[in-house]
Each structure stands twice: as structure tokens, then as C-alpha cells.
């Protein structure tokens, strides 16, 4: 495991910590898309089906359990916690799940490496993760005052994807025969979705302004 992979995972973990901090400590999920969080829960649930059958390392197993547990915890908070659920911007978070789930599943049936249930679901999860941030980006654009925790949460998620790209470049040059086209192309698409957000995040940060996206 190279430094970029480790930093990527830690950034991903930190993004979850930031989001949980907002939800659990401040008791607010304002500006957070439940649609995106539900899609992430679905991503982890379909990708980590191999958790007990395909052991890579203790590190991987522990991280998988953390991501599964936290993603469902976040969804639970936003849907059921009596205080948190009242801060959810339901009217603004209008993106439809099926508009992302159905095309991703169709694509997973068409483009995958093996036609087995586990393999198709794993591929589906890769495609779905690439676009799962979409409802969140739409919601951010509609939000007038994006608070720091929400802005930082999305920034950390984007940074995690960028670091994974660097990790793949290192692996390509250091591991003989290493290639994974489905993951790479999905990863590039996923990182590209953050480009616009990054541009405004850095611009506002440099100007010492509160983060706002043009509508």
C-alpha cells in the first residue's frame, strides 16, 4: 500500500468524521443530501458483500466495517433522529435515486469482468460511487449559506478521490501487470465531478469568503 492510497483512505475516513461531527454534535444535517448518503450506503452494501469470504488484510476488513457502519448510521440519523431529521432540507434535495441506480445497474450488466451476482454487484457499486455525489452537488448549488463543515465534508470526499488517482498511477508503474479499467475510468469520472466544486472552494478560501456556488 502506497502513501497516496493510505492518505486517500484517511481523507475518506476524515470526511465521514466531519459529517458525523456535524450530525451528532451539532445535531444538524442542513445542506447534506440524504439521497447521496443513501446511495453511499447502497454502494458499500453491494461492494463489501465479500467481507467474510475475501480476506485481504485486517486493515481492509476494519475499514469496510467502518464505512458500512457509518454510512447506515448517517442515513438513520437523517431519517429517524428526532432533532436531526428536522434540519434536513427535504424540499431542496429532489434528485431521484433511480435516475442514478438504474443506469448504473444496466451498465454493470453490460460492462463487467465476470457474470456472477457478486461481480455484477461489485461493478455496480463502482459505477454508482462515481455518480453518488451528484445529488449532494445539486443541493450545494441550491444552498445559499454553505456552512464550513458541509463544505469541508465535500472537499475531503473529492480529495479522497484525487488521492486514489495518484495511488493508481503509482501502482501502474510499480506493480507488474496491474490494471483495472473499470475502477480507473469510474474513478476519473468521479474525480472530474468535483472539479467545479474545487474551483469555487479554493477561490472562496483564497478570498477569505464564505463558500458559495453560482447557480
Amino acid at each position: 500500500m502506497n502513501i497516496f492510497r493510505l492518505c486517500g483512505d484517511m481523507t475518506h475516513l476524515l470526511s465521514v468524521v466531519v459529517l458525523l461531527l456535524k450530525i451528532h454534535t451539532i445535531k444538524s444535517c442542513a445542506g447534506i443530501s440524504l439521497k447521496t448518503q443513501e446511495l453511499y450506503a447502497l454502494v458499500f452494501a453491494t461492494r463489501y458483500l465479500d467481507i467474510f469470504t475475501h480476506h485481504v488484510s485486517l486493515y481492509n476488513t476494519v475499514m469496510k466495517i467502518i464505512f458500512l457502519g457509518t454510512s447506515f448510521t448517517i442515513v438513520w440519523y437523517m431519517r429517524h433522529h428526532k432533532v436531526v431529521r428536522q434540519t434536513y432540507d427535504k424540499e431542496q434535495d429532489t434528485f431521484k435515486h433511480y435516475m442514478l441506480i438504474i443506469p448504473c445497474f444496466a451498465l454493470a450488466l453490460l460492462i463487467k469482468t465476470k457474470f456472477t451476482p457478486l461481480e455484477v454487484l461489485w461493478t455496480f457499486s463502482i459505477y454508482l460511487e462515481a455518480v453518488a455525489i451528484f445529488p449532494q452537488l445539486v443541493l450545494l448549488q441550491r444552498t445559499k449559506n454553505i456552512d464550513n463543515l458541509t463544505g469541508n465534508y465535500v472537499f475531503l470526499l473529492g480529495a479522497y478521490r484525487g488521492l486514489y488517482l495518484l495511488n493508481w498511477i503509482v501502482r501502474y508503474f510499480t506493480e507488474k501487470g496491474y490494471r483495472q479499467w473499470i475502477t480507473w475510468i469510474s474513478g476519473i469520472v468521479q474525480t472530474a465531478l468535483y472539479a467545479d466544486f474545487f474551483y469555487y472552494y479554493i477561490k472562496c478560501w483564497r478570498n477569505n469568503e464564505k463558500l458559495h456556488l453560482p447557480s
Binding site: R5, H54, M63, K114, G177
Partner: peptide
Amino acid sequence: TNDADVKDEL
């Protein structure tokens, strides 16, 4: 190595 074998990432 093919795509199916690389499942060591999260």
C-alpha cells in the same frame, strides 16, 4: 492480473 482479481482497494 485482470480486473476481477484486483479487489484489494476499498
